[in-house]
Nucleic acid binder design. Structure first.
Lengths: 357, 357
DNA sequence: TTGTATGCGTTATCAC
DNA sequence: GTGATAACGCATACAA
């Protein structure tokens, strides 16, 4: 970049009223550029786009005018005339949760290599109406496709939007409510892998933590599978529902008294709470109690944390979602019934052999 | 800490009737609606916008046509004639990093209460050109204002966009390159609080970790202040640059041999690496070595992690950014020189008195 | 090589 | 109350 002449300050006395910056003075258009360069709009446009068929003299004049006017082409107007630059909409639950943050990253990466621009909106736990509005913003922007990665959108909204634009659900199994909407989800048998792990360690009484089913149906499916697997193996089990008000010290104390030797948590943060409670109670982990988390996203996969957990494959989910919506956009055949991506067990220091009794 | 939702879920459905999916037919326009309703575009538009001056009969006809055609107004075309005043653009570094995820959440929350819709795009570490394109998408959408929370956008791009639309930087001090662009940033003296903490504990030889300056200018400023503060106090210090290839065991071993008794890390993940290395070397923490992190976002603020760290106020930063851009949009006076938001020291179990020598 | 005219989808300004 | 028509900013056949 060359240094700007000092005349770039506003010498013509267009004194800003209050704004210290970028006074919303009307943006210069290609018409201004053409005028300043003494050519027609068409020539200015061609020069702008670097198209052939512009004399060198005019090219330079236009470029100078662009520089001087700080002209930035209006993408909106552009996209009105040319077929919309492929944009993918991502409807995401609050990126505050690591799962969604990582999903977003994987999504952007995969979409990027396919040449899509990505626009995302966060649905954090708003009323359904607001979610519909937000989704409509994406649709109104003429996104080529939309990926919904939020559990808090109701099926009717999904269906209405899906009728209008290629839409893929991720992280949720939509078939129950919307049989025709393709989806990609973690393997529902992921949790079973954890069961096999603690079973192999000799545990015979296991607790599973869970949040309320309506808050997280997918998690509920996973936990039901875990439970039936436990019962097939004759392992005693109980499901404890936790929430923001849960007193983990009381909970862990009670579980320990009931001879539970392993707690499989619904996510890593809950596992952290259980670990803190165990420490507070003087219980050794994994000596007295084995604890496992779920999700396995950084930093919980770090050796220094030492948590046994299960890594949910955010990158794989994102990639599959982009692939799916890409096919939908191109009107190709997609897998009905959804795509399941299995995760990976991460064994660390919070699980061990069941204590001898 | 309360349990957080983990891997996503689907709402329990009702009415599992089939919606059609993936029709690649071009979107219907208001012209189609007008045609189907047997009215003119103008009437259709008025009905669509709920404007007065439409007969009840026509209103219903239009609404029915809209329903039947699954018509969604093209926001892009709309904003060509009428700038949409209720949309804020957020240009964010990859939400994979917790800092940006939390920032995004706070931003959406604050923007929501002010009635803004939020559209965000992620700049993960792309070439500048791609970032320019992404930013232009936002600008091109005619967002009322834009907040840039990414250190990887070059000043010229910022300037050009800021000339067109109200723009605020967050997390970086833009005054050097763009004196006129308002910004909100963490207090540069945040790190000094950590210095005072370890100084009070009697440490006389301290190491600071850092990533390369161009990767994070803000961090660099903070660390320079920390260093000068250390020198004012006569505390020996060294800055070690770390990166993805860093061998932390070697690093910590070397620091320990050099009689360093406290390591202040540039973020919590780095602290985790240092802790793991210390454990691997048989060093007790904080007996032999005190370790502190930086950022203090979940889960590092959790008592079970036990890390001494410094919480950077993401919510406050986000709120201030929204406030600033809101003022800019309304053409109100904004603070020149930026807004600094101080964070909060979180003392836990990884820092302690300097070992007697 | 350059300019003219037209269309993209919507809203706004007029007449009627 | 309603419907032509002109912007909005840009790209592009089509002429010249």
């Amino acid at each position: 970049m060359s240094p700007m002449p000092s005349s770039a300050d506003s010498p013509d006395g267009v004194s800003p009223s209050g704004g210290s910056q970028g006074d919303p003075q009307k943006a210069s258009t290609i018409r201004d550029v053409a005028l300043a360069a003494g050519v027609s709009k068409s020539t200015a446009s061609r020069a702008l786009l670097g198209q052939p068929g512009v004399s060198r003299a005019n090219l330079e004049k236009v470029q100078r005018a662009i520089e001087q006017l700080d002209f930035v082409p209006n993408q909106i107007a552009r996209s009105l005339s040319v077929p919309s630059p492929a944009t993918l909409g991502l409807f995401l639950r609050s990126a505050e949760y690591p799962f969604y943050g990582h999903l977003a990253k994987g999504f952007a990466a995969e979409a990027g290599v396919r040449g899509y621009e990505v626009l995302s909106v966060s649905s954090f736990d708003q009323p359904d109406d607001a979610n519909y509005q937000s989704l409509m913003v994406l649709a109104g922007l003429r996104a080529a496709g939309i990926v919904v990665a939020s559990p808090v959108v109701d099926p009717l909204t999904i269906r209405r939007v899906a009728a209008r634009v290629p839409l893929v659900l991720v992280g949720q199994m939509g078939q129950a409510s919307n049989p025709d909407v393709p989806f990609v989800a973690p393997d529902p048998d992921d949790g079973v892998v954890l069961i096999e792990h603690v079973a192999a360690l000799g545990h015979t009484s296991v607790a599973l933590t869970a949040v309320s089913p309506e808050h997280s149906p997918t998690q509920w499916v996973r936990i039901q599978r875990m439970r039936s697997h436990l019962e097939d193996r004759g392992i005693r089990n109980r499901i404890v529902t936790i929430g923001p008000e849960t007193n983990f010290v009381d909970l862990v104390s009670e579980l320990h008294k009931a001879a539970v030797t392993a707690v499989l948590c619904n996510n890593d943060f809950a596992a952290l709470d259980v670990l803190a409670a165990a420490a507070h109670l003087g219980l050794s982990v994994p000596g007295d109690l084995s604890v496992a988390g779920f999700d396995g996203l950084p930093p919980f996969d770090h050796v220094a944390v030492g948590l046994t957990t299960f890594r949910v494959p955010t990158a794989g989910l994102a990639a599959a979602a982009v692939d799916l919506v890409h096919k939908l956009i191109r009107d190709e055949e997609v897998e009905r019934g959804g795509v399941f991506i299995p995760g990976e067990l991460l064994i660390s220091r919070t699980t061990g052999p069941a204590p001898a009794r």
